[in-house]
Amino acid sequence: MTAKRADKIATIILDVIAGVIVLILASLLGYILVRGLPEVSWHFLTSPSKAFSSGGGIGIQLFNSFYLLLLSMLISLPLAMGAGIYLAEYSKPSFATDFVRTAIEILSSLPSVVVGLFGFLVFVLQFQIGFSILSGALTLTVFNLPLLTRNIEDALRQVDFAQREAGLALGLSRWETVLRIVIPEALPGIISGVVLSAGRVFGEAAALIYTAGQSAPALNFADWNPASISSPLSPMRPAETLAVHIWKINSEGIQPDASAVSAGASAVLILAVLLFNFAARFLGNKLHKKITAG
Rank of each mutant, 00 (worst) to 15 (best):
S108L: 06
G84S: 05
F95I: 14
V114I: 15
G84R: 03
S91E: 15
F118K: 04
I133G: 00
M73E: 12
L148G: 08
Y90C: 11
L125T: 15
F63E: 06
P48Q: 03
L68D: 04
P93H: 13
L117V: 15
I85W: 05
I104S: 12
S76Q: 05
S135H: 04
L87K: 05
V115Y: 12
P48L: 04
S76T: 13
L74G: 13
T141V: 07
L74P: 08
E153L: 10
L79K: 08
I106H: 00
F99G: 07
Q61P: 10
K92E: 14
P48A: 07
S91M: 09
L134F: 10
G84Y: 08
Q126P: 05
L110H: 10
Q61A: 12
L79F: 13
I104P: 11
I104N: 12
L77T: 00
I75P: 06
P111N: 07
T102E: 00
R35M: 11
S41I: 02
L70R: 00
S132P: 03
A83R: 09
V124G: 14
L71K: 01
P93N: 10
L156D: 06
P48Y: 01
V114N: 00
V122A: 15
I152D: 05
W42V: 13
I75M: 14
I104L: 15
L87C: 07
S49A: 14
V142D: 01
F123I: 12
G55D: 08
K50L: 12
V122G: 14
N64V: 00
S94M: 08
L37W: 03
S72C: 06
R35Q: 13
A51Q: 05
T102G: 06
Q126W: 14
A88W: 06
G56D: 02
I129P: 03
L140N: 04
E39G: 02
S47W: 06
L68N: 00
V115K: 13
L68F: 01
F99A: 14
A96E: 10
A137M: 04
I104W: 10
P146I: 09
T46A: 09
P146Q: 04
F99Y: 11
F131D: 06
I152C: 05
G56S: 11
L69T: 02
L77W: 01
G84H: 04
Y67N: 07
V124P: 14
L70Y: 00
S72Q: 02
S76K: 02
E89R: 10
S132H: 07
G56M: 11
R101G: 04
S91L: 12
S112G: 06
S54M: 02
S41T: 07
T97K: 10
L68R: 03
S76R: 02
A96G: 08
A83Y: 08
F127N: 11
